[in-house]
Design a protein around this nucleic acid. Structure first.
Lengths: 341, 341
DNA sequence: TTGTAGGCGTTATCAC
DNA sequence: GTGATAACGCCTACAA
């Protein structure tokens, strides 16, 4: 029963209920220690209900010095992993009464977005897929921050065990008998990818199976990048027998490159991705990969952030590391040495 | 040179500059008719710069009765189409100084999200993938709204020509010689899908090639839905020779179902999707589809919305319809009548 | 228990 | 030109 255009204010409710505006505020703020006479409380609640009163969050924010809004910054939505992180984050945030301000940013845009978020008195920021170390120190100063999938001394983080993912990848491929392995990863220093890479390399070194540099291909962490990278690997005089990709998008690009080049998966080549995005199950053969709980990362990031906000920034940085899991599907198989014809 | 924790306010700038606070506001607001003595203006600007002053947008919003924020509501991020819409929207919004509040909502959650957006004094809302007609009338009352990909008398819309998409689909498949066609679509009344469906049916009827009801399969507009739907179609005693899917996700699920069932595309069956998401090019054979400019839809939706906001809601609902385009790839081919063995 | 006063940081309307 | 003064809608004291 709202009067059209303009919203009902607490003052109007107060007037109609025959009380003062702060009393309305008192009743509506579910403050336990705010004792109000049951009669007035009931009256105020009734009128508020009738008028469809809802507090103006901008005004609340101004006086409480909080916006009840969270910023989420990702490099792009084209990667389903970030979409999943955002989805998980948004759900938890909404349940807690927080809004999610979405920012898609690469490079220096990140700083501008952060400033814009500050102007809106944002309560906290979640950053995924962008290395915090590449940002000027001041950019995150005094902000509640949770980083997704990148370790940090200074900020709280929620991540999957990327190092382990790399290790698992190496172990899986080694166990299948592969000895000539390749890695396909991005050129940019995106933390999660770097860790997957390092875990992979370390495990290989530990097993005495080093990677020569021509077997490390770098390209954008996209389908197109994976396609190009795999083409380069296939052009080698001596091809690898197994390839680990920094993420599933690259792996799917690589998958396509193999399909185009007539390279049989997994007969001629084993291919392993990382993330386990839905698409991985759509290609034929289905992509073997390492599952990362992206949605859960987003959800946890918000929970951790809210905890920090409530603690008034008096909490030391916390970190959570979620387990990853090998999902062996159709693109990885036993190494078949020189085919007898 | 910001004093750590708390932000610099206009009052502080005023004090240091030896002017009143409103004067600072006057100088900073790029209001042309606000004539200030060049000397004061310069001084204020200098101090503001030094102190790193930035206006508090919450406070601005309170008095201007605007939040400089837009809400975007979609049913889910798992569909790359919505991700693209959001991406396009966010970019334009950010350039105009607007924030994007993201909401993922199905069913009755939509209303709650809308209320929450109202509480934040949202300046406008973009809705994609959710039928406005399913919302209670009051939910959008007095709000600046732009609907994406659904026609409306009452609200502004930005869409692709969904009806035409259906027509194109029918014409393409008919031209290839198919006469036993099937349709795979969602059970829910999502406007864009319904229109594609209608366009398809109309064109078929016009060509004298009606669809019997068993050739209309309904399932969720997801990969899983497409998978299930195609399985049902393949189980028919007399299979269709061509299938049009309401969107690419369903088509990819259908693609997978064929792959699993050993049904050769396009030899045994032609398959056509709609949207042209990136994934369409990753499967083998590549998915034929109808391209929809999703990113552009998002971008235009924001531009239209901003125009409406600036017009103070005194503008009649406007509508834009973008063209769609057939992208014939590998899953559609000439109808091959009963193979001679 | 409730009302009054004051302020959050900004913009808008006036007198000066 | 410039500076008070009054909102915007709410919350936190403190006084009644």
């Amino acid at each position: 029963m709202r009067i059209s255009n303009s919203r009902v204010t607490a003052t109007e409710v107060a007037r109609k209920a025959g009380v003062s505006q702060p009393t309305v505020s008192l009743v509506l703020s579910r403050n336990p220690k705010a004792r109000v006479a049951p009669a007035t409380r009931a009256r105020v609640l009734k009128i508020a209900q009738e008028l469809g009163y809802r507090p103006n969050r901008l005004a609340q924010g101004l006086v409480r010095r909080r916006s009840y809004a969270l910023g989420v910054i990702v490099p792009g939505f084209d990667n389903p992993v970030y979409a999943a992180v955002i989805s998980g984050a948004e759900k938890v945030a909404a349940q807690a009464g927080y809004a999610v301000l979405l920012c898609e940013a690469k490079g220096s845009e990140v700083v501008q977005h952060l400033e814009a978020l500050r102007d809106r008195q944002i309560d906290g920021v979640i950053i995924a897929g962008i290395a915090a170390s590449t940002l000027p120190a001041a950019a995150l100063d005094g902000l509640n921050v949770v980083l997704v999938n990148q370790p940090s001394e200074k900020f709280s983080t929620v991540g999957s065990d990327s190092l382990k993912a790399g290790t698992i990848a190496a172990e899986h491929l080694l166990a299948l008998g592969h000895r000539r392995l390749a890695f396909l990863g991005p050129a940019d220093a995106i933390p999660a990818f770097r860790l997957r890479e390092r875990g992979f390399f370390q495990a290989l070194r530990g097993a005495g199976v080093p990677l020569s540099s021509e077997l490390i291909q770098r390209a954008a962490a996209t389908v197109a990048g994976g396609l190009a990278g795999m083409r380069a690997l296939l052009a080698l005089s001596e091809r690898p027998t197994a390839v680990f990709c920094a993420n599933d998008l690259m792996a799917l690009g690589a998958h396509k490159a193999c399909s185009v080049a007539g390279v049989g998966l997994p007969r001629d080549l084993s291919l392993l991705g990382c993330d386990d995005i839905e698409m991985a199950q759509l290609v034929t053969p289905e992509l073997s990969t390492i599952a990362v709980p992206a949605r859960e990362l987003g959800a946890r990031a918000v929970r951790l952030l809210l905890k920090q906000i409530d603690a008034h920034g008096a909490l030391p940085p916390a970190s959570q590391l979620l387990a990853v899991k090998l999902v062996a599907r159709g693109t990885t198989g036993q190494h078949a040495p020189a085919q007898p014809r």
